[in-house]
Amino acid sequence: MYSEKVMDHFQNPRNVGEIENASGVGTVGNAKCGDIMRIYLDIDNDGIIRDCKFKTFGCGAAVATSSMATELVKGKTIQEAMEVTNKAVMEALDGLPPVKVHCSLLAEEAIHAALWDYAEKNGIQIEGLKRPKSDIHEGEEDEQEDY
């Protein structure tokens, strides 16, 4: 059901991990839908994304789109990163099954959420960037069970 590229990025995801003292962190999605993505950005003083890492809870497509999104924004300027749309992520992966298109949207949102965090921390405005709508840390109630 998945393209070879999706399978490759699922099996060998690029840029998995965390960045300590990241310039921006964004987490989107929710457990109800079964997908949560977190993207860490390391942005230098010239506004270049020097590093990008991710963590994802979700299906094969969710992992692959996160991996591809990090590859696409790495080394880019903030404005260039803003142009990494869900379509760009999907194309780079040779497409996704229709039911998985939302995963690519989530990847785009995760980048935007991380950029928003960076903008807020630095008191700047990024052209075309809107407040992320689905940051799970807003009003999330923990219902963890004990095992």
């Binding site: 998995v16 993505m37 963590k55 994802t56």
Partner: peptide, 21 residues
């Protein structure tokens, strides 16, 4: 789990909260 943000949060919370199993 190594790439799960839920696990990352859980571990972080656990290290702050020593009474978690």
């Amino acid at each position: 789990r190594g790439m799960s943000p839920l696990y990352e949060d859980f571990v972080r919370k656990s290290s702050h909260n020593s009474n978690v199993k």
